[in-house]
Design a protein around this nucleic acid. Structure first.
Lengths: 339, 339
DNA sequence: AACGCTAATCTAAACGTTTCGATCATGTCA
DNA sequence: TGACATGATCGAAACGTTTAGATTAGCGTT
């Protein structure tokens, strides 16, 4: 900018005024300055600007796994929304790892991000402290956090799983295996509650042996399914509370020599692009990823636009059961349900 | 830092020296300073540091679609690699859109990213100019760019498709449909070359009606497949040069009332997590995503470590044909190939 | 002609670091 | 004892912006 000012024989203040439109500058000088900018190929240094202004027009986004199709989609939507608003997005993947998450959030705050969207991990104690100290707006995504009182976008997980399990019960299933992710994040609580509520509403006993836990990865789903299928009285249906784990479920079913839906019915949380292309077409609980991403972005953009003092807003969206053909009515022949 | 200096009754220079270890500071002052840092909860401002140092420890990463599983995986690997190295990653999705890409790269350069990894879009003319002006190292990912002479990591696309098509030919297929992405990016050229080479090597004619183009999206694959299947003498196999498009291919096959592999064989570029879980298990060309991401990260990290003047390095990795059961031998019964 | 008003422009301080060179003890050596 | 090297600390400039407040010029009023 100094060079531009010299070339145009004006002060840097005038150049700044023209670029930002913060003051009127005469047509004559405007032209000289614009010419100088072109000649020199001047580009404003956003870092210097950030330092002075105290804002970076950059936000931080942390998710557990970008390879989980739910997060992939949400990240994509959020990225586009902020792109439109002229913000850059710094992406971090925590790999469901608590220390990583805390380090990354600190890294982002050091870099003076203007806001944060966090699909958190862990109990949130440190997150709470970070959020309290750092004076940036935070939007919680997918997972709320006790004690952290801030904007959030979540799914009505309990209702969604209730619907899915009730669907299985209506098909005649009585022993329904349930594979949960670890309990330290809120959705896993709520989804389990939905499972229990559905069983209870149907007057079915909640049998502990039918519930297994995993750590969100394919291998965990595989192991959990193997255990369920080895039970003396094995379940006729399995619901996986997380998408990557259901891959393991399907592989375990295949490896043990069974097939879905003939021998066992399967449904899971989170839809994905391939779900209705192959056989079996998997019955899933689809989250409204577009809406979730947009709402999260809007909440944060609203705070960034200056609406700092409004009370925390929690948006709860509804999931949708996508009924396909991976669950068969008990008693019906396999033929009658294949596509 | 000023507050810390005052609280510890030293100068800011001493505080800086201690924090960065750039000069020895006496145990006594060290202790006072560290105490003050704790008391105040001081965190170094990375923006001010960047301004002074001329480096942000942040890189920019642009990909066409993060929802394409190939890019999802590569982004994940790259993000982790830079995370380990203490760098932040700014992610941009260009949606295969040229203007978007150019804007985003400028946005990143304005923010003084230290380096760029680009899975480019378009003819690269502007990219070339940007790369020339901006004095940051650039690594091209997946797609090279005529005239832009810089580090790159690509696949041996021609060979990979040659292998896949040759496999189909060996199974007895003679009329093999080919669905390409648009030709303005290098891999599509090379993949097409692999297709033609394989046909030629087998003495088969290259029939123009068997080649269709799409714009990388599911709907394009759907339309292209519909056209291929409507041909008077329809192909017995279809190869899709891009992963999202093959979803469209499978849907078109289903909608037209055919089934794979009984009526038509399908293979495609890019593997994905579900490929061997459902039926048919799709035969794909798997890219070594882990290696691609790591190599790209390493090339850039090497430049960032100061190795600026080495000549451009182009790494070409090999794809791997994952043979599953979506392609049947011509003449064999459907039974003999189902899993 | 003196005055005030407005519009255009400029000067200089500030943002929070890093770092060069200066300063000042302190101890060592001739 | 004076000169000098050494080690620790500090002052101040610099990075490239923004912006408050000062300055100047032009012009209409009285």
């Amino acid at each position: 900018m100094l060079h531009v000012a010299e070339a145009a024989r004006v002060s840097v203040a005038t150049v700044s005024a023209l670029i930002n439109g913060t003051a009127t500058v005469s047509p004559e000088l405007s032209q000289r300055i614009e010419q100088a900018i072109r000649d020199i190929g001047y580009k404003r240094n956003a870092i210097a600007r950030s330092l002075k202004m105290g804002t970076t027009r950059t936000i931080g986004l942390t998710v557990p796994h970008i390879t989980n199709p739910f997060f992939t989609d949400v990240v994509s939507v959020i990225q586009q929304a902020f792109d439109r608003a002229g913000y850059a997005v710094m992406l971090c993947c925590t790999d469901e790892h608590l220390n990583t998450q805390d380090d990354q959030i600190r890294l982002l705050l050091d870099r003076m991000v203007d806001g944060l969207i966090v699909a958190r991990v862990g109990d949130g104690a440190i997150l709470k402290r970070i959020v309290d100290d750092a004076n940036v707006p935070v939007v919680l995504l997918d997972r709320v956090c006790q004690g952290v009182d801030t904007d959030a976008v979540v799914l009505d997980n309990q209702r969604a799983v209730f619907d899915a399990i009730t669907y299985l019960i209506d098909l005649g299933h009585r022993r329904i295996g349930y594979i949960s992710g670890s309990f330290d994040i809120s959705p896993m609580h709520d989804r389990m509650a939905g499972y229990r509520e559905a069983l209870q509403a149907a007057g079915l006993p909640g049998e502990p042996e039918l519930v297994r836990f995993g750590n969100f990865h394919e291998v965990d789903g595989y192991n959990a399914t193997m255990q369920l299928l080895s039970l003396h009285d094995r379940p006729s249906a399995i619901f996986s509370a997380n998408n990557p784990m259901v891959i393991g479920t399907m592989k375990a079913i295949r490896d043990i020599g069974l097939s879905c839906p003939e021998d066992i019915s399967v449904a899971c949380f989170d839809d994905f692009p391939w779900s209705d292309v192959f056989r079996p077409q998997l019955t899933t609980v689809a989250q409204p990823v577009q809406a979730i991403g947009e709402q999260a972005a809007n909440l944060l953009l609203d705070r960034l636009a200056g609406n700092r003092d409004a009370p925390p807003r929690k948006l709860t969206l509804k999931g949708r059961l996508m009924i396909r053909n991976s669950c068969r009515p008990l008693g019906a022949t396999a033929q009658s349900v294949s596509a």
